[in-house]
Amino acid sequence: MILKMEKFITLTSTVVPLPIENVDTDQIIPARFLKATDKNGFGNNLFADWRYNKDGSPKADFVLNNTQYSGSILVAGKNFGSGSSREHAAWAIDGYGFKVVVSSFFADIFQNNALNNGVLPVVVSVEFLAEIFASVNADPTTTLTVELENQTVTNNTTGKLEIFAINPYKKECLLNGLDDIDYLLSKKDLIEEFEKKAH
């Protein structure tokens, strides 16, 4: 068995707020950066067109270039990760150093891709999300605590807590650093049986 992913257990961190809705994977990592044949280095081009000027200098008004904000939790507006299925988006977020993305909902393919790379998508209510943005806006040192075992996310400024949903199987995978291929490879006999029945 190969432990491909880092185990995820609990995390307390300041956050990077991105209060934009429908952030598509073309923004997370533009297509011209998809020419690589390995998974490394995408973090440098995370949000490239929002983050850098044409000459490669940082755009002062983008949140990743604002020294007030840092941390391993990205908080974004609803429908984060829509569009292209490129897993490079998850590699870029992971590569930059984010371990958790919080939003009020995620696009399906991105959500799977994140989980398959040990990045935890945390779905919170619209109100809870708005409150995080308000807390961070008032005080950039605001932290969130995410505990996977009991599936809670806490805004440590307000003390408010929400329980988030995660598929129990995926939770086990994250807690133990396992991936789906390990599971599927252990079911080879079932697959061959299925093929015989189907044909």
Partner: peptide, 13 residues
Amino acid sequence: GIGTSEVEMVLAT
């Protein structure tokens, strides 16, 4: 549509 991890799963199994 699927991600690359899932492409690997399909190729393998």
